[in-house]
Design a protein around this nucleic acid. Sequence first.
DNA 1: TACCATCCTGAAAACGTTTTCATCGGGCGA
DNA 2: TCGCCCGATGAAAACGTTTTCAGGATGGTA
Lengths: 349, 349
Amino acid sequence: MDRVTLNDVALRARVSLATVSRALNQPALVRDSTVRRVREAAADLNFRPNLVGRNLRARTTRTLGVVLPTLTNTVFADCFQGIERATRLQHYSVMLTTTEYRVEDELAVTEELLRHRVDGLILTVASAAESPVLDMLDCEKMPYVLVYNQSPRPHRQTVSVDNRIAARDAVGHLISIGHRSIRMVTGDFRESDRAQLRYRGYRDAMRAAGLVPQPPVEVPLHTAVASGALAQCLRGRDPASALFCSNDLLAISVVSGLLRLGLHVPDDMSVVGFDGVDLGALLYPALATVVQPSRDIGESAVDTLLARLRGDVPGRSIVLGHSLRIGETAVRFARRPTSQVIRSPNRRK
Amino acid sequence: MDRVTLNDVALRARVSLATVSRALNQPALVRDSTVRRVREAAADLNFRPNLVGRNLRARTTRTLGVVLPTLTNTVFADCFQGIERATRLQHYSVMLTTTEYRVEDELAVTEELLRHRVDGLILTVASAAESPVLDMLDCEKMPYVLVYNQSPRPHRQTVSVDNRIAARDAVGHLISIGHRSIRMVTGDFRESDRAQLRYRGYRDAMRAAGLVPQPPVEVPLHTAVASGALAQCLRGRDPASALFCSNDLLAISVVSGLLRLGLHVPDDMSVVGFDGVDLGALLYPALATVVQPSRDIGESAVDTLLARLRGDVPGRSIVLGHSLRIGETAVRFARRPTSQVIRSPNRRK
DNA sequence: TACCATCCTGAAAACGTTTTCATCGGGCGA
DNA sequence: TCGCCCGATGAAAACGTTTTCAGGATGGTA
């Protein structure tokens, strides 16, 4: 057990406990020879400062709480890595919890972080507009920054891309390469206000081109996309030639589903995702998608939050730039063969 | 700010601070009517216990430290979710840090967790056999459990699958469906003792079938697999008909690389991964792979560690079962066409 | 020599809990 | 009635720091 405390070091260095503390943390206040003696004693004893004691006394933990929906989606994992990097650079620590998209857990896990007395929070909630957690945090004046979320209320500071415009750009791209019948595939809207904004962007782009936006195709998240849902896009008088998916995981799943139905991507159907996870670029065909800078989002959130903790005035939400990754799953629309045959999956010959 | 402490509650409930503490934590010791009064006062004041104070006094934080190489690989993300779930069930908290595969950081990030006085650690290190961090932890008698790693020293308790046997099974499967020339593709051996064990499993399987194991094809991790590395497997008098990859991310990347070279997977080349990430099953063709129960690994590690913290004797390492997911990227070997043409990528027609 | 400023150090309080120990009142057995 | 035990409560110590305050030594100046 490590029962060695400041006091033990003090005894060994033959100085008072206060001097040890100063020698280790503010060496300028202590005579050089003493500093050396203390450092030596500390090293000899293998002294490891107890942050619990420090935090109690300092009434500050230099720790940030992070609440994310999941880590399985690498978007959030990347963001967390950014958060971790930035906090470490600033000599802060992090406590992470995930809700696994259980909206009803958001409050409880956050409570727990507050019991630990984190100095501030970085979170992604289901909906920034209507959120019991955020109401609570506001009410307690606990500093926080949202990531990925965008909020109508300006005092809820966020770091994100402009989801609506980004989606509009993506769909606009599809339109610019000749697609006319485009549908959007999303997970459960209730889990993600981002998906809603992206849907608005889809509508914007369609309308701007004089096209009629279709209702979204909602599929259960994180499972193989039911071929039924896909078939739905292919049927009717005006079958889709392109699908815009509200995130990359979904898009990847959609591409596979189409291939499995015997369709060719992108020749029979173009697909565009949203997120820009690294994996998408590794696939063949490489996923066309909207890239958001997840790591930067994390780092920015930390910087913003720490600035606030230092007493800076809250400042405005931060919108980071997105970009389109052209990829190979989206291609110029070509009139499809008069009789669209559903071929068997692309086995050889 | 939440400056409301036990003392404030005590004043409002007109009892002593000690009674408040007892009423909230061990209500059996306090008269019912008092408990009610205290609870009411606490609720009125919005009292939130300060874990820093508690942890200092209790000399225990009910917090586990977790050190993982990365979260970008969903294997570890899944494991963490398991860890989180299990800890929450037991009313513990978690502090997570990642090393991003920088072996030289393992020690420093662990030190930081120890400063926070975590009660125990769950970690995946580059090599369990030779690890400064583990040496340090052993020396300080700090309880820990390894995940994914397997250690030759039995006192280093681990939770993992049997990597060697699992790899042998996977390669054995390839052999059983007719493959004779099989190579293994891995990332940097220095980053992962698992990869080394899996390579041994590969050799075991090859030798057991009277085949000659080939040296591993080492490729830089987490980047598009250089087509050069793949070409290497295709050249020579005895080109490979199947590739065994040391993890799924790599395998996915390899499959894409092959497709990009104009080969057909699995007809021209079978590919098998290791990990069993969910995503692999969603792809088309679905990735053939060895499935390890990542979530269970996380949960088991927590259970094991907590048992140890409760004073149970260390116990043996835990080996969880693996399984083969047949997938679509591995298929029975068929004599290849006499002249192997490298076709252009599978565009239509 | 007397005085003051400066530099260094130590004693002690404080952070918010839990827990030990002591106290008090009342019920119960003898 | 006395003595005891038990249940309920409070006072105070302890956990390991940081920081305030005060004091002692030293050196420079008048």
